[in-house]
Design a protein around this nucleic acid. Sequence first.
DNA 1: TTGATTTGATTAAACGTTTAATCATATTTG
DNA 2: CAAATATGATTAAACGTTTAATCAAATCAA
Lengths: 329, 329
Amino acid sequence: MKKVSLKDIAKKAEVSTATVSYVLGNKKCRVSEATKERIRAIAQELNYQPNQIAQSLKSGKTYTIGLIVADISNPFFSNIARVIEDEAAKFGYTVIFGSSDESAEKSWKLIQFLKNRQVDGFIIVPTENSEAQIEYLQEQKMPFVLLDRYFPQLNTTNVAINNFEIASEMVKDLIKTSPKKIGMIAYKNSLIHMEDRIGGFQEASKSIESFIERVGFNAIEAEVELALENLLQKKVEALFFATNSLAVAGLRVLQQKNIKIPNEIAIASFDESEAFEFFYSPVSYIQQPINQMGTRALQLLLNKVNTPELQEKTEILTAECVFRKSSQR
Amino acid sequence: MKKVSLKDIAKKAEVSTATVSYVLGNKKCRVSEATKERIRAIAQELNYQPNQIAQSLKSGKTYTIGLIVADISNPFFSNIARVIEDEAAKFGYTVIFGSSDESAEKSWKLIQFLKNRQVDGFIIVPTENSEAQIEYLQEQKMPFVLLDRYFPQLNTTNVAINNFEIASEMVKDLIKTSPKKIGMIAYKNSLIHMEDRIGGFQEASKSIESFIERVGFNAIEAEVELALENLLQKKVEALFFATNSLAVAGLRVLQQKNIKIPNEIAIASFDESEAFEFFYSPVSYIQQPINQMGTRALQLLLNKVNTPELQEKTEILTAECVFRKSSQR
DNA sequence: TTGATTTGATTAAACGTTTAATCATATTTG
DNA sequence: CAAATATGATTAAACGTTTAATCAAATCAA
């Protein structure tokens, strides 16, 4: 069952492919109504579907965008992917995605890969040390939007949240019962979102003793356990997790060590997780505006795709604190 | 910064585009080493990247596969997507995905959409009433593999799990302390995976009184609450959830109604969820072999893509029961 | 009636590749 | 030394579209 092309329709209708193209493309052109009808009927009959590859080659547009996230299996990113997918579909765009695993090398491979596939633009959650990749895209005049994180020294279009302020707000709540020591578990990641979360933590806890433990991306379980043990030795009375993955790993350890939350230690976390609500002491968390993040990123990208010389801008959306029992001593 | 094409390299190297194509494509051909070197150097210098769109148009292959899941934001599917993505990348394939939301209409739109984008094949988690779509793909000789569910009456290649047996095993464990009544909450979905889970439940609980409540996909929260209330009225002493989403909604209600698990009611669920482990009485669940499901589906698809007349086959992988406290009375 | 305009459609080139067929030139063979 | 072969490269068509340029015939105006 060969694919039906314009040529097939043209042959059957005894006209040129150009005529068929004009008619099916609804271009303004001079073709008699009779011929139009005939062509449309035949197209319908043969169930003609235009070959987008050929269209893309001609037009230089693929109506495809590349989405690079840290890890599509992380609910935060899969939820954002879902939003972007839905929003893109509204405008006739398809989404191709890839996971960088926070590795600049993988990220570069993905960029090359997707660029060869001629995506019209990128939405990228950048990894550490990927500045050069971003600058490369700029040189190539390839439209893109950075999401979740960005590089302050680079003039790019970004969609992010008020990490510093919201972390500070959450931590202030965490220490409102005046503990003497507080701890934070964050990733070993120098990107702005992480630094801002840490900055907010420090700002809010500057009046008391604070400790920060940072773990790598690889052996989260083991490293978080170690980090937590260090903090327990310091006798922290409150604990702030920089992401949901860290919190879940942390909860596991806390539960296992049978530490009473919030009485012995009050806790709160960034991001959401289904686990938070069912932990015996429901976990306070910072809710990111995922829908907005996805739709804005896509909107800004499409703007750039359609208007190349647009000014770069950074959009900072506001997250919200959801207070539950885990932080109320 | 226009894109560099074979033509640009050819001009600079003062040879024909054909020669450049042969050299960069590493085809066996008769070109002197000197020329080869010159061409390769220029390609490197100009940072030539082949235009995959043009290649695809010529070859009829896009090295792209379409993945249609029920909902990419559901961890079960995003995890599978991740596995498929990684596996596909190994073979130089890209994944384009879409969420059907269990709607045959959306599924059809996605199939059309992806087909126009000339994907080489599909991995589809089919929705109810999409048999015609599947048959259409067969007529079109479009390679595809069905995942998670399939239509027994259609001769297709499928990757699924032993839903009946594993559900039966879990339910048998659930009733080993001889409760008199057991309930199940399932989706209103006539597809085989759901029917088999229900079948396994019935088979295992045939010696006692059993009740089945089925809820729609839309207002899960409200419907699950209603279903649960019905079952509570029947005074069931054990409860089996057909999926993680149903279980999470159910746990919410159970927690709110302050029902003691497992003492008042023993529970177990299909699928995993981060919530299960942190529920005060960790939830027993059926763990699906997600890695295998993804890799096998992709493998079978690539086999079909490369060997069109391959025989259809159904691969049934085995899930495992993970017993925790919630089912031990 | 002649020239200008409108109408309905075709031609041909282009997008960036791939690849069979062909063609000079150089080298080997008998 | 002529014929056969090997070497290094080019030509041209094709994939399925789009679209500017062109063309022939019919209609109109003067």
